Amino acid sequence: KGEVVGHVTTAEYGSQMLSLGGVHHLTGGSKKEGRLTLELMQLLGNKKPAECIIDGGASIVIQAGRAPIVNGVEEQRMRVGCGSAAVGIFARQFAGVADEVVVVDDHITGVLTQHQAGRCLDMAPSGIEMRGRKSTPGRYFQVANPGNGWGGTDIDDPLSIIEGWEEGVARPGLRLLMTSTTGEHAQWYVLDDQLQPVEQPMPAEVRRIVDRIGENCEPSLCTVLFLGGAGGSLRAGVSENPVLLTRAIKKALVNVTCGGAPAYVWPGGGITVMVDVMRMPDNSFGTVPTPAIVAPIEFSMRLDDYAALGGHTASVFPLEQALSRGAWQDDGAPLARQWQQIDAANPWPLAQPPMLG
């Protein structure tokens, strides 16, 4: 809708990371920017789909627990690793059935016979000469531009990243496999008398290895992590001396959860937490007109530890009373209360210490 709501950060093994929302977009720009940022954060936190357009890039639909949709195409596989990693993982299986294997990848393309894995298997050099920028032996950067083709590059013809073959090393009949890091693209070649790769039917034993590459790729998945801080008024609602709450958490006396889900507490000052929204109850996130996002957070501890950190012990009463009468004596029973099954992976909050950074 024309407003900036975040930015692209880094990538790890093909998983692209986005930073979306945050105070600079909520309150540091126009009123429309803040409103749309808040809408996006609430949608993502509540496990709903949200569409964004990357400047100069793709249109993406993000939804926690679902595969990303990029330019209208739903992604299927997360790659097993970069091209170098794939070579290392499957080198022993390739040896004996192929004379050279190139795993095409937009990050690091791997070449088996030059790679340390191929050398450890005493594989003979193939004489292949690659495009791109050579890193360590058997590893190449920038063989092509990023795109929707082979291995996340913009190429449709894998032979386009081969510059040539070294005479006296390459030989007619050499067997070459080119595959992507997910196994979704793969072709089999044999060098002719002019040292030109000629596509041939892929042998069954090679196809099994390519299929195994695909088998080792996990399904594509969007992970939404909520990052937020416990504000001053919130901490004052726990203790008359809020800094004691912060110190008790850092001493592992108080566990921190968000909707019952384990929360990672960032190092440094204050109480800044990060949590996987898939482990939180549905519709956990709300908003206030500030604009600001509102998320559940719980501090669990022993009663004597609560008293020691200056807690409001005069306001402590049993859970049964809160469920029947409300948070305060004259509130009445909560009318919108819902019972939800907790995530089986979430431990009871008092059964473990906080996840401290």
Rank of each mutant, 00 (worst) to 15 (best):
G229R: 04
G270T: 07
E205Q: 14
L191N: 07
A292R: 15
E240M: 15
R208A: 11
L191R: 00
I271R: 01
Y264P: 01
W266R: 05
S284F: 12
F226Q: 11
E240W: 12
T272F: 11
E215P: 03
G268Q: 14
D304M: 13
V256T: 04
A295D: 03
G286S: 13
T223Q: 09
D193A: 15
L221M: 09
Q196M: 09
S284P: 05
M202D: 09
V288G: 08
V210I: 13
V224N: 01
N255A: 14
D282G: 11
R207S: 11
G260S: 05
N216L: 12
C258T: 09
P219L: 06
W266S: 00
P289F: 05
C258D: 00
S220V: 02
M301F: 11
T257N: 08
V190Y: 11
Y189I: 01
T272S: 09
R208V: 05
P203N: 06
A186K: 03
V265R: 03
N283K: 04
G268S: 15
A263G: 14
V275C: 13
F299A: 00
Y189E: 05
G231Q: 08
R207E: 11
K250S: 07
Y189R: 09
W266G: 01
R207K: 12
V294W: 00
P281D: 03
D211S: 01
Q200C: 13
T287D: 06
I293L: 15
V288H: 10
S284H: 08
E215A: 13
